[in-house]
Design a binder for these strands. Structure first.
Lengths: 286, 286
DNA sequence: TGACGAATGATAGCGTTCTGTCATAATCTA
DNA sequence: TAGATTATGACAGAACGCTATCATTCGTCA
């Protein structure tokens, strides 16, 4: 094992660090795993056994001894190392991230990092411009993610004015009745969506488009109805193998939108952030 | 699907190139695969089916139609693409996470992973028990994070009954007027808090404690008033060097609470999750 | 609105994977 | 060299993954 690169992967470091030394079979398995790290994703216990000349149960025992929950656990670790290498410089969290809740947190963190793909899209800065430059911004969202939309509307209003939450069922879209005085204004709708609310959401988006608004949709990974309606559709991974979908990464993306809109006029945003607390002080809330 | 990045991965290009268009289910699967490309190594046909809401055989048919020899064939293709890529997936992630927004996402992801510390606390399972075993759960939160609390109340109500959102300023705590019929019931208050709302939050927590309720507070990293009032205080990092604090990790922790409460009675939670859509179908929302 | 075709799902069966239990082989020590 | 201990393997069973077949649902068209 001494002939391996000094620049160890986490896998190599971990296998090398097994206390008590390795038996002959274990050494063979460890070396094979390290040399074939790039393609471990495709292997099974049986295929590793076949390639190393030991039995399947020996492979299984070795992985357990190495601290993995079987080959699946090793694969999950490799995946996590790939994604999280740039998040935390130390292993201090990963020790705690064993178990079911840890797995959910890791997938949530994966989903947050994966937002980088959405922000990288050419449509992203155009969507930010649509929101930042609109004379009025409407925000809507339904049922169990209505809160995300409401918080977004409140928080977006901190960094720019003329933001309204829209409750189509309650208000029947009276906010969109045409006004002569404001006929030339640019308006933008931001919709926070989660399948399967297409029946409600799609007509609203189509109505907004019909009225000349730009529409930005932030939605989950299953939404396919939004793309034909507007170029500004951004997906968030919500399935994290929990009882319910995760809404944390979607909240994070809404916060990033606010940050980017504030970044379009940073001095104005800073002034608004500063001006707000004194106005609120009369409420006696803190 | 037209909103995807112009810099398509081979997988995205291949799925996009399927002639004859996609059916509704196929479009969902294709989009999900593209959005989750980084973690496909860990998926099975069954797990993809579960996450996309289609059946396993539909996933299998789609992969065949896309020219893969099943999921295994897709994984082999991904692996081969990995070997031939000039930039490794890890480096690609690094490049995406470069820059200001990438830094924010990394800090957000780090804050999500750091939630493992809160979940590890001895108080955590006791807090989950307090919520799960209460006869009635009240949920409250204010201003720009009121939406997180409202969504939490709605979603917690999916997995257990007798959950109420509390709006103290609107309702003046009428929900807490004593009732002889329910005098012996165990009640629990869950408060989502963010500095600087101590002036409003603290009296509510003290009132709840005085009325014999258990209180769980989920709050940001600056809160110091909560710990003397209740043993169940969980902190979330919200400072991510953005214009405004991030509420994504807090949303994630609320989701973890829901998951854990559901886990205290999983069959009941699954039944409630299953029973809800038919009731909702009358609304015509999807 | 009804019929027809396409899409999709349920179920069962087959193949593969993983591991518990017991047996065998290898290694070490006296 | 023999006995004891440890490492490893064989086998069977449980669990999981995938798909063929048939049924059901959905969408389109007349």
């Amino acid at each position: 094992m001494n002939d391996l690169s000094s620049e160890d992967s986490p896998l190599a470091a971990r296998l090398r660090g097994i206390s008590g030394g390795l038996t002959k079979s274990e050494a063979v398995i460890a070396q094979w795993l390290i040399l074939n790290e790039a393609t471990l994703g495709l292997e099974t216990g049986a295929s590793i056994a076949a390639k190393t000349g030991v039995s399947e149960i020996t492979v299984s025992r070795f992985l357990k001894r190495a601290g993995y929950k079987g080959l699946q656990g090793l694969k999950e670790d490799l995946q996590a190392a790939l994604v999280h290498a740039h998040v935390s410089p130390s292993d201090r969290y990963f020790r705690l991230l064993d178990g079911e809740i840890g797995a959910i947190l890791k997938r949530d963190a994966d989903a947050v990092l994966a937002l980088a793909h959405e922000v990288e899209k050419p449509a992203w800065p155009q969507a930010i411009d649509a929101i930042a430059s609109a004379d009025e911004v409407f925000v809507t969202g339904f049922q169990t993610i209505r809160g995300i939309a409401e918080d977004f509307a409140r928080r977006l209003a901190i960094v720019r004015g003329s933001v309204r939450f829209l409750s189509p069922h309650d208000g029947g879209l009276v906010e969109w009745i045409p006004s002569f005085r404001r006929a030339e204004e640019k308006r933008c709708l931001v919709m926070v969506d989660m399948a399967p609310y297409a029946r409600e959401a799609l007509p609203i988006v189509q109505t907004a488009r019909g009225l000349g608004m730009q529409v930005v949709v932030v939605t989950d990974e299953l939404n396919t109805w939004a793309s034909p309606e507007t170029p500004f559709v951004f997906h968030v991974v919500t399935k994290v193998d929990a009882f319910l979908e995760s809404t944390g990464p979607m909240t994070t993306l809404m916060n990033v939108i606010i940050h980017e809109v504030a970044g379009r006029a940073p001095e104005k945003a800073r002034k608004r952030i500063k001006d707000w607390p004194p106005i609120m002080r009369g409420l006696g809330l803190y």
